Simulated scan of single mutants.
Amino acid sequence: MKPYNGIWPVAPTAFNPDGTLDDDGNRRVMDCMIDQGVDGLCILANYSEQFLLSDAERETLTRLSLEHVAGRVPVIVTISHFATDIAVARARQAKDMGADIVMMMAPYHGALLKGAPTQIFEQFARVGEVGIPIMLQDAPLSGVELDVPLLARMAREIEMLKLLKIESVGTAAKLRALLATAGDHIDGPFDGEEGITLLADLDAGATGTMTSATIPDQIKPVVTHHLAGDRDKAREAYARVLPVINHENRQCGFRAAKETMLEGGVIKSAFCRHPIVPLPPEPLAALMELLRPLDPVALRWGK
């Protein structure tokens, strides 16, 4: 068993109806996730709307989250930035506040500014000098192609690069190749993207998944059964939740978790900052129709 395993969902950021941070709502989000038996959680990720938060708000949310979780589960703080000095400063701040792990994508800005392999390696190495475990997020959003030889070299040569979250096209094949070439240096092979390819990724050697916060209690049995060696039960559990995962991934995005938590009384608003538009009524109604038979914790936690 790898040291890092299980389900580590992304916390959505709760806003008041006027768009300001809802501090109490964000604390309730943490409690709701922990009450679902998550093995860890992640803040300030893309599904936390990190690209719509100011630097001051990032610091506020980091401090609030770490103080409120208070060691009940490990917390990953996302620190991605194109500028290496800023990524290093964010890593140092997260470590000083008590984060367990930092997560970062390869450096990119817009569609055209992308780090070359040498620059990517150097940025992760610089962050590694801070002395906190790193999760590398290999995500399509960055537009950066991270091939297996580069990732394997980084895993072997950057001591603090402990986890790889692979959610690019062909995740299972990539995970299998990475574990074959650098498996002894990867303490946490994870997938992401709401778990839409979770079963195949577990078959390929993933030991953890970073989903959204919509139904972690329902997805966790897939991982638990698979890690226990019972693939039949894992397959059955996966078939049960896959319609929700697919609808969230293809129709809703990060708005699904917020709408679920609003319906369940966890937060008081599903507000998303402009230019993100609210979830239209049709996919929202379909989401609730798919969720209710599962009876997820988030749909009833605050009622």
Rank of each mutant, 00 (worst) to 15 (best):
I43Y: 08
A45N: 10
N46V: 11
N46L: 14
N46D: 11
Y47A: 15
Y47V: 13
Y47S: 15
E49I: 09
F51E: 14
S54M: 11
E57M: 10
E57C: 08
E59W: 05
L64W: 08
E67R: 14
V73K: 09
P74R: 05
V77S: 08
V77T: 08
V77Q: 09
T78Q: 15
S80E: 08
F82H: 10
T84A: 12
A87W: 02
A89K: 12
A89D: 12
R92T: 07
D96H: 06
G98A: 08
A99Y: 05
M104D: 02
A106W: 03
P107D: 07
P107I: 00
H109F: 15
G115C: 07
F121A: 11
E122W: 01
Q123L: 07
Q123R: 11
A125Q: 14
R126Q: 15
V127H: 09
E129I: 03
G131H: 08
I132F: 07
I132M: 09
I134L: 02
I134K: 04
D138Q: 08
D138K: 03
A139D: 11
P140V: 01
S142H: 03
L146T: 00
D147E: 10
V148R: 09
V148T: 13
L150E: 02
L151H: 00
A152K: 04
M154E: 00
M154Q: 02
A155P: 05
I158L: 04
E159L: 06
M160N: 06
K165I: 00
I166C: 12
E167Q: 14
